[in-house]
């Protein structure tokens, strides 16, 4: 089955890269796996990044640089000084500014060819489906389980892939959920677990969300280009202190009522 990005190209055969885009994306264009056709798929793609934090910032920077045509950025929060050791889109002059708007402004300077849509709102049940429906892929960079489950459930309902990243001190997890009817986050962790802390409670090595966020950006690009092996049905677990990586396979569950061991 052809990806939806082929369909978009077929619908608009006149679409071409501008001369500036040919220059900007030259190192993509000369790759056999991308080329002009792949770059046009990126140009036609729409990705929503939920959370412009430690995971979202690096992912956004590379997705912007890669020429993803439309990037939505959801974040109601404001830049705090304690964010700057890992949220490298921002500087000390940005403290107090809304992250979504500030990120869009910075990313526009990096690549004015793409459309950046900030949503300076909290993602909630009342607005999530309406926002997510406009995008092909959702990259989850949220910092709380309520939002992660909301994103997962909306992606499942709307049949959108969710590129997942999560962090704990020096360890990270990456996966792609709901891709081509594959397992969802609830197939792995069926229920919201309030006991798992986030980095504001236990700390995090600043570069860790950078590494994990870039894995997420990589998976999103692979989905758009239809290249390589997407991390669907598998969870990549890594430890930056030991460089130990483990891949665990996840089965799709018909009735996602399996309970966690607790």
């Amino acid at each position: 089955m052809r990806s939806p990005y082929y369909r978009l190209l077929e619908e608009d055969k006149t679409m071409r890269l501008t001369e500036a885009e040919e220059n900007r994306y030259n190192r993509h264009l000369i790759l056999d796996q991308i080329g002009r056709e792949g770059q046009l798929k990126l140009k036609n793609a729409k990705i929503l990044v939920v959370g412009a934090g430690g995971l979202g910032c690096p992912a956004l920077q590379y997705l912007t640089a890669a020429g993803v045509g439309t990037l939505g950025i959801v974040d109601f929060d404001e830049v705090d000084l304690s964010n700057l050791h890992r949220q490298i889109l921002f500087n000390h002059q940005d403290v107090g500014r809304n992250k979504a708007s500030c990120a869009a402004e910075k990313l526009h300077l990096l690549n004015p060819e793409i459309e950046l849509i900030p949503y300076p709102v909290k993602l909630e049940a009342s607005n999530a489906k309406e926002i997510i429906a406009n995008y092909d892929i959702v990259l989850d960079g949220s910092d709380n389980f309520a939002t992660r489950y909301l994103v997962n459930d909306c992606c499942t309902a709307l049949n959108k892939p969710m590129v997942y990243g999560a962090i704990y001190k020096f360890e990270g997890q990456v996966s792609v959920f709901n891709y081509n009817n594959g397992p969802t986050y609830r197939c792995l962790f069926p229920e919201n677990d309030a006991t798992a802390p986030n980095c504001s409670e236990v700390g995090v090595l600043g570069v860790l969300p950078g590494v994990i966020g870039l894995y997420q950006a990589t998976e999103a690009i692979k989905i758009i280009l239809d290249i390589g092996q997407v991390l669907s049905g598998r969870l990549l677990q890594m430890n930056l202190l030991t460089h130990e990586t483990t891949q665990l396979s996840i089965q799709k569950r018909k009735q996602q009522t399996q309970t966690a061991h607790k």
């Binding site: 890992r86 960079g141 986030n198």
Partner: peptide, 10 residues
């Protein structure tokens, strides 16, 4: 055997 907890975000 591996014991995998959910991780938070950021």
């Amino acid at each position: 055997i591996a014991l995998l907890p959910p991780f938070g975000g950021g």
